[in-house]
């Protein structure tokens, strides 16, 4: 029997691709000139906002959550080599960034949390209590 290797990321990738293309065409959001691009996810009880910000000092990122808006700003700066070097390629950019993201639902902003790991900023904001999905127990006699 053949064993099929399935990458658990594959399904998500396909879904992301489909949503990307329908929203922006194949060029993606960056064609619209926003940095960094963000992805917003529904995780049941909370919203999860992710942005790729490699090589940024987490101490230089400021995150704000207010009403239905999540915003963050910061700066990406590199140490220049302190010796004589010749650049072959220079594709990485430095500078300031700022994004404001509207979330399609009410937020419990006081319990929001953010983490920066492996160059990815992840902001988790619980949904306001009244908008969370509630599981209703069925009683049986």
């Amino acid at each position: 029997m053949a064993i099929t290797y399935r990458d658990p990321l594959e399904q998500l990738q396909r879904e992301l691709d489909r949503m990307l293309e329908s929203a922006f065409g194949s060029a993606g959001a960056s064609a619209a000139g926003v940095y960094p691009p963000v992805n917003v996810f529904d995780a049941g009880e909370e919203y999860v906002i992710k942005a790729e910000l490699p090589g940024v000092d987490p101490g230089k990122i400021e995150v704000n959550v207010e009403n239905e808006t999540v915003s963050f700003r910061g700066e990406r700066t590199f140490d220049e080599p302190n010796r004589d070097v010749a650049y072959h390629r220079r594709e990485r950019e430095q500078g300031q960034f700022r994004r404001v993201v509207r979330i399609p639902g009410r937020l419990a902003s006081e319990t929001a949390r953010a983490e920066y790991r492996d160059g990815v900023l992840t902001i988790r904001v619980p949904k306001a209590k009244e908008t969370r999905p509630r599981r209703v127990e069925i009683k049986a006699d």
Partner: peptide, 20 residues
């Protein structure tokens, strides 16, 4: 490679970049 478990249980609502 990125870790699939970072995306477990997440349903995309708004997408601006692909992951891989």
């Amino acid at each position: 490679r990125v870790k699939p478990e970072d995306y477990e249980g997440l349903k995309p609502l708004h997408v601006e970049y692909g992951v891989g």
